Lab assay of single mutants.
Amino acid sequence: MTEYKLVVVGAGGVGKSALTIQLIQNHFVDEYDPTIEDSYRKQVVIDGETCLLDILDTAGQEEYSAMRDQYMRTGEGFLCVFAINNTKSFEDIHHYREQIKRVKDSEDVPMVLVGNKCDLPSRTVDTKQAQDLARSYGIPFIETSAKTRQGVDDAFYTLVREIRKHKEKMSKDGKKKKKKSKTKCVIM
């Protein structure tokens, strides 16, 4: 069974824990209790493949930012979460993405942009803004509501699919490099 290491990042209060708990335990946590770091595991079937999701729910508070490099190193894919009623959390996505790329030393890291709290009427981040940002990053965008469960499975499952595509691409690139290195030079 394939294991996928997913990391949920975003500013404090955007609903990272609520999304994760909704996926794992099928219930909505409405009281806000700032996370330092929590880890969850769940076995699911995605596109006919049974897999184990190892999900790291991270601290959004700035005082825990020193811990970010460590979990970013171990993560295979990242859910970059903002709240649709919090423009600052949307603007912060850029910083999370840049930090992930720096730590992973790669421009090509599996990510999904997630606009959470889409059940709320007080939207300050337009869907088109988020779609445009995701398009500019070359990553999928999904709106979710941890409260109603809308888009929750889709967000995590899409990230797994992005990781699969990335692994497939990397193995193809690896095979191309191996083929090239088999060419021999004969000096007579």
Rank of each mutant, 00 (worst) to 15 (best):
T50W: 07
K42N: 11
T2Y: 11
V7W: 10
C51W: 12
G10Q: 02
T20H: 00
A11M: 13
L52E: 15
Q25W: 08
V29D: 09
G15C: 00
C51F: 13
P34S: 04
D38K: 01
S39T: 11
Y4T: 13
H27R: 06
E63P: 06
C51Q: 11
L53Y: 08
H27Q: 15
V14E: 10
T2D: 14
V45C: 12
T50Y: 09
E49H: 12
K16A: 05
V7A: 11
I21N: 06
V8C: 08
I21H: 08
L23Y: 12
I24E: 05
E63H: 06
G13D: 14
Y32N: 05
Y40I: 01
D54A: 11
Y64N: 05
R41M: 11
K42T: 09
E63F: 03
K16I: 01
D47Q: 09
S39R: 13
K16C: 06
L52N: 14
R41P: 01
L52C: 15
Q22F: 05
N26M: 09
D54V: 07
I21S: 07
L6S: 04
V8N: 01
Q25Y: 09
V9H: 04
I24W: 11
I36W: 01
L23I: 09
K16Q: 03
G48V: 07
Q43D: 12
Q25R: 07
S39A: 10
T50D: 12
V29C: 08
F28H: 05
E49I: 08
E49A: 11
G60V: 02
V29A: 07
E37I: 13
D30K: 10
V45K: 14
P34E: 05
D33I: 03
I24F: 15
I24C: 06
I55K: 01
K42W: 07
E31M: 06
R41L: 09
N26E: 13
L19K: 11
L52W: 13
T58K: 02
G15Y: 00
G13Q: 11
V8H: 03
S39H: 09
E3K: 14
K42A: 08
D57A: 01
D30N: 10
D54K: 15
Y64Q: 05
Y64W: 05
S17R: 03
E31T: 06
D38R: 03
G15E: 00
L19T: 14
V29I: 11
S17W: 00
V7F: 06
I24D: 05
L6D: 01
Q25C: 15
T2K: 14
V9R: 04
F28L: 05
V14C: 12
E3H: 14
L53H: 05
K5A: 05
V29Q: 08
N26A: 14
E62I: 07
A11D: 09
A11C: 13
A11K: 06
G15R: 01
I46M: 10
G60N: 03
L6T: 07
E37W: 10
L6Q: 03
D38M: 00
